[in-house]
Amino acid sequence: MTPFTKCLNLSAVALSGLTLCAQAAQAPQHIDIKQLSKTVEDVVVPLPNEIFGALNKLGAVNWKEHVRSDKGANFTERPRIALLLGTVIADGFVAVQAEDAPTVKEIGQRVLALAKGIGVGNSITPHAKAIIEAADKRNWEAVRLELDRTQNSVQQAMNEVHDEKLSQLVSLGGWLRGTEVLTSVVTKHFSADGAELLHQPDLLSYFQTRLQAMPEFNVSIIREIEEALGQVKPLIDVGNARIPPQSVKKINEITTRLGNGIVTRD
């Protein structure tokens, strides 16, 4: 073999290697989801404003009628405080949609008080201050960002002290309040696309699994939620079928009942 041919062969090998690398980076058009089951990470729970944003694109929503002034009773049980905290943060997102500055400021204060109640007040103080300042300036984008940061900081602080279950209850409280508002909006002005936003069966399964792993929380509202999620599951786990208006109404009744239970003392 001449040196030139040798060189050419080596180049061909190098080139085919590069081509293989490029092909390896290309994504296959189809993958087997069942094979992934062992490597799948937990879900990140969507924020209420993620759903509200999609809802807004379907038509104008009168957010003012969904702003809630009742910020809940003062609880001493940490699981109840965690659930309420998630709900109040979700109320913050509703108040931002409604551009209701006084309510946003009240929520900032309430979030701080609840965070103190479960021992994570220190990490929330700067966020609560930022929420109030941004609401004063009617800087809604900044309020949204701070509400997200608040929830994240609360959950990180809880995780650091191995209170992951309370952290999950914060997410659950927010998800329930978001679903209550979503179903209320869609019940009033039904659309198939609006109802489709409820198609969240994996998220529901995630919460069910988490609640089943909390037998130590002897709090009636948690058991009520666990039972209610079992009722909601068949209404939203419909595959490719559409979610009908009566299902949306039923989910709204269930989540409204649970929402009242979260903010009210037994």
Binding site: T39, E41, V43, V44, L47, G53, D202
Partner: peptide
């Protein structure tokens, strides 16, 4: 709007990880 929450970990060369996420039509 970039979420504060995130996924993370470590993997060896050639390894993959799947994360599941709820996405909404319209977004």
């Amino acid at each position: 709007q970039v979420r504060e929450d995130y996924w993370g970990g470590d993997l060896g060369s050639g390894e993959k990880k799947a994360v599941r996420q709820q996405l909404f039509k319209g977004n």
